[in-house]
Amino acid sequence: MADGATRAPSAVATAAAAGPAQETVRTPRTDPPAGPAAAAARRRGISWRQRLEIAVLVAPALVLMVVFVAWPVLRAVQWSFFTWKGYGPLVDFVGLANYVSILTNDVFHGAVRHNLFVVVASIVLQLPLGLAIALLLNRPMYGQGVLRTIVFVPYVLAEVIAGVVWFQLLQPRYGVIDAWLERFGLSGPAQGWLGTPELALYAVMIVLTWKYLGMAVILMLAGLQGIPHDVTEAAEIDGASWWQTQWRITIPLLGPTMRTWAFLSMIGSLQLFDMVWILTRGGPANATTTMATFLLTEGQRRANYGIASAASVVLFVIALVMALTYQRFILSRDNTVDSPRRGKR
């Protein structure tokens, strides 16, 4: 207990210290100018002892990485070229047949489409909502702490528990939502929100938004703390309204946070599995399959490990390409943004 109590404030202190630290990076005029040269000198001076130290310190992480990341990825690539039932030797080499099979499979096409829908819809829904709530919660108000906690609670809830609760809420006729609708003389769809192929994906999307909005809000709030008060103060002195301050000052300065959040959201959407599996298992009529549910169905339930491996490789490639593209064209702005500004000064 005592240990936890002492640890908590120190974490806050570190977070607070991070703010000013950023400031010094942004105005490096006082930094010693010989940064790179000093680093080079240090590198030359590395002794065997130090190299050993580095090797010993890095090795455990590296071993874990190889055993639990690199090796499984390589095995999946290997399996994707075979027809394999999950046991017995790998003998039935089929070349690219598994890839041809999934790339011509309507269910897999649907899965990719659903993933992309979730990627786009997550950002379109959660970015403005998250930003708006963060800006509101950033204003001094009564019950601010409580409201911040409430917004964040869904994100803290275990995904499976949240999924089961929503599954019951969305049940046709006997679910809470349909019962409420009935009280107002309305009725839900006959097959239920999750049982109607045309509606199921939207229903899942709403649950996902409920679940992950808190994450966007908390990140934006953290970003807002990093924006120095003097900038907004200066704007206010110049006569800018609250709206103008937010629109012209706060939101642009929040850019790096929003771009990082969008990146995390995109990766999460591509890997989407738990919530869909609990709410719909990819159904009804394959209306909510994702790449992850597809590969689980093929692998675990049908024992088509070759096809499942090929699907996992395709998922890996799609995620990698999207992540690298995003880093190259969008996140890179955050890494270079300081230099032109520095030049102007």
Binding site: Q171, P172, L194, G195, P197, A200, R281, G283, P284
Partner: peptide, 8 residues
Amino acid sequence: NPGFLSTP
């Protein structure tokens, strides 16, 4: 039953 397409 209503919702049978998604009923476990």
